[in-house]
Computed example of a mutant assay.
Amino acid sequence: MDTKPKKDQPIAAILLARAHEPDEANRIFTEKIQQRPLFLSASSPPPANARAARRRAQEKKKQQRKKALKPKPLSATQRRKLGLYDVPRAPQKHALFEPLHQLWLRYVREILGNEVYTGGEGAAAKLASADFHGAGVEVVRSGCVSRVGIKGIVIKDSKFAFEVVTRRDQVKLVPKEGTVFRFEVPVPVPGVKAGEGEKEREGPVQGGETPKMVFEIHGEQFQFRSADRASRKFRSHFSKKL
């Protein structure tokens, strides 16, 4: 039997013929090499999308790096421990918050628009989602009689209470539950046109009184944080306590 390797014989068959008998070498070559199954990964992208797959992988790595470098935000417990929600005692002066009150008046007139003159359900819906930091507030009714008459500027609008600084530079914590608060917004009076725009002025009109929009809120209906009220939709419903 001729055992010399042929020129067109694969190198694997030649090496097996040197180590095994011819029949055994042919069996091994047939089962292990020629008929060996080739397993393809199901997640392997086709050649046409290989470039897009590489781009997605690179973008994913970049996003993971950004997340690793970005610091985690502080939790509510950590913020309270650091005192981020506390107002320092030194600047608890009524005069210091007067500019904030004037800014709030411009803010509430802007969100009300023409409804500052008419009021109604549209104005109530806008006021329900407004921010009351800097608002001038007065307690008109309360379950605790000693709180009635407290008047000042809201320096903190939390979920369950208003913190108010009075004209005597005292900070009062007024719970919202069982309390009715009154707010007054001076109504701008159209003045005389000058140039291109129309000026607006505030102050006494001919009768000697400044027109104001006065509204009251029931604190029990406002037991939400100001940030939560901005995205919350309020619906009119009957309340037994009103």
Rank of each mutant, 00 (worst) to 15 (best):
D2P: 12
T3C: 03
K4Q: 13
K4L: 07
K4V: 08
P5C: 08
P5R: 02
K6Q: 12
K7T: 13
K7A: 14
D8K: 12
Q9M: 15
P10C: 14
P10L: 06
I11D: 05
L16E: 04
H20E: 04
E21N: 10
D23P: 02
E24P: 00
E24W: 03
E24G: 04
E24Y: 03
A25E: 06
R27Y: 07
F29N: 06
K32I: 03
K32V: 09
I33Y: 12
P37F: 04
F39A: 11
S43E: 13
S44Q: 09
P46G: 12
P46L: 10
A48E: 14
A50Y: 14
R51A: 14
R51N: 05
A53W: 08
R54H: 09
R54S: 12
R55Q: 11
R55S: 05
E59R: 12
K61W: 03
Q63D: 08
Q63P: 00
R65N: 10
R65D: 09
K66Q: 09
L69D: 12
P71C: 01
K72P: 02
K72C: 04
L74M: 15
Q78M: 12
R80P: 00
R80C: 05
G83M: 03
L84D: 02
V87C: 09
R89M: 09
R89I: 12
A90G: 05
H94D: 08
A95L: 05
L96M: 03
L96V: 08
F97N: 02
P99Y: 10
L100P: 00
L100F: 08
L100M: 13
Q102A: 15
L105K: 15
L105R: 15
R106C: 07
Y107L: 03
V108Y: 01
R109N: 11
L112H: 00
L112M: 10
G119N: 11
G122N: 14
G122R: 11
A124H: 06
A125Q: 14
K126C: 04
K126S: 06
A128W: 05
A130H: 07
D131T: 13
D131Y: 05
F132P: 00
G134Y: 01
V137Y: 01
V139Y: 01
V145E: 14
S146P: 01
S146I: 07
G152N: 01
I153T: 05
I155M: 08
K156A: 13
D157F: 02
F162C: 02
F162E: 00
E163L: 12
V164P: 00
V165F: 03
R167H: 06
R167N: 09
R167C: 07
R168V: 01
D169E: 07
Q170G: 03
Q170I: 10
K172G: 00
L173C: 09
V180K: 11
F181V: 02
F181E: 01
F181I: 05
F181P: 00
F183I: 15
F183P: 00
V185S: 07
P188M: 03
P190L: 07
E196I: 07
G197Y: 12
G197E: 15
E198A: 11
K199P: 02
G203I: 05
P204T: 08
Q206R: 14
G208C: 05
K212L: 14
K212G: 02
M213Y: 15
V214S: 10
E216W: 02
I217F: 03
H218P: 00
Q221N: 11
Q223G: 01
A227R: 13
A227Q: 13
R232T: 09
F234D: 10
R235F: 12
S236P: 03
F238T: 12
F238Q: 13
S239Y: 04
K240D: 06
K241I: 11
L242N: 09
